[in-house]
Amino acid sequence: MKLSYLCTSQISTSRLCGAVLLLLLCVYAFATPLLSAQDAASQNLSQILSLPGGNSWFGTDHFGRDMWVRLADALRLSLSMAALCVLTSAVIGVTLGILAATGPSWVDRTLDGVTTLILALPGLVLVLIFAAIVPGSFWMLYVAISLIQWIEYFRVTRAITQRIARSPEVQSSRLMGFGALYLFRRHYWPAIAPQLVTLASFGAASAILMMASLGFVYVGIQPPLAELGLMIVEHFPYYSDAPWLLAQPLIALALVVLSCHLLGGKKAS
């Protein structure tokens, strides 16, 4: 009993830490443009690779650009991508999952075939194909990542809904004449919703890592926009002269992914 209490308390604390860390990163990313008049693309060649402190809290990069502002821009871009992908994937996946579980058998077979077809290609390869169609497009990356991530929501939703649809409670509601909307609100959604937090958290981390991976190989967001993966590869040649410059996007990427993973922990009962 005592061990179980300690485990659930630890899990709950981890989730709280993840939420606080993610909130702090969001505040930094979205509040910086409102509080700073500095342009992330503005160059000052007389202040190249300056140390953190003074006029620039995080120093400047190899073009004399303010890293405090650029890092905020990169985080804001990654967080926006994650939020859009999670929202789109969840809506599509949950809707299609419920249709597959409660609709005609041909709908389930068709959707199952579509997911199998998409899963036949590695996710990152599929995103690379879309990124090559319109290089540097934020919206093309969003479509590509969402196209991959909705499958997880679909599979979890379909499995949960199929189990609940056979329960005596749902059968009784149907015999009493309640419609599909009532069944969704009363029976399906309460069972699906707790799983969405975990799926959304890990999905957000996956979207951010995918976007950074594409930037790292120069097929994602293009300069002069600030993006974490692109910043890492741009700063790598200066790791010996300005190691703090390379460390900043690496730490930012690690923190935002860590916050999502902590947030995706199981909720304490």
Rank of each mutant, 00 (worst) to 15 (best):
S206A: 13
L183D: 13
R186K: 14
G203V: 07
E234P: 00
P224C: 07
S240T: 14
L245S: 06
P190G: 06
L196K: 08
L245M: 12
G220A: 09
V219C: 11
F236K: 13
E227Y: 04
V217G: 11
G179R: 05
P243K: 09
E234M: 11
A242W: 07
W244G: 08
A180L: 13
V217L: 12
L183K: 09
Q162E: 09
A242N: 04
V219N: 04
S240L: 15
G220I: 05
Q162P: 00
A193T: 13
R166A: 12
A212M: 04
L228E: 04
L199S: 03
M176E: 14
P223C: 07
E227L: 10
S201A: 15
A242D: 06
V217S: 15
L196M: 12
Q222N: 02
W189V: 00
R163V: 02
R186M: 09
S213L: 11
I232E: 03
E234R: 11
Q222D: 09
R163K: 10
F184M: 14
Y182K: 04
L230F: 07
W244A: 10
G220N: 04
P168V: 01
A191N: 13
Q195S: 14
G220K: 04
L245K: 09
R174E: 08
L199Q: 08
Y218M: 10
L209G: 05
G177Y: 10
A180G: 10
M210R: 05
A165M: 08
V219P: 02
E169C: 00
A204D: 01
S167V: 01
S240V: 10
P190R: 05
T161E: 03
P190Q: 08
P190L: 01
L214Q: 01
A165G: 01
M211L: 13
A242R: 02
A165Y: 05
S173F: 04
A226Y: 02
L225F: 06
F184G: 06
S167I: 01
F236G: 05
V219M: 12
D241K: 06
A207V: 06
R163G: 10
I221E: 05
L225C: 05
L230M: 15
L230Q: 09
M231F: 11
L175P: 02
P249L: 08
L181S: 15
P223L: 11
L246I: 13
R174H: 06
Q222E: 15
G177I: 08
V219G: 03
I232Y: 05
Y182P: 00
L228C: 08
G215E: 01
M210H: 07
A205S: 14
F184Y: 13
S173A: 07
Q171P: 01
I221R: 02
P249T: 10
Q195C: 10
Y238I: 05
G203I: 00
A191W: 06
P223Y: 07
I164Q: 12
F178H: 14
W189E: 06
Y239R: 15
H187A: 06
L175V: 11
G220P: 05
D241S: 13
F216V: 07
Y218I: 00
M231R: 05
A247C: 08
M210P: 00
A193M: 11
R186Y: 03
W244D: 08
Y182H: 15
M210C: 14
P190N: 12
V197I: 13
G203W: 00
L214G: 01
A193K: 14
A204Q: 03
A200H: 02
S201W: 00
L230I: 05
A204M: 03
G179D: 14
P243Q: 10
P190K: 12
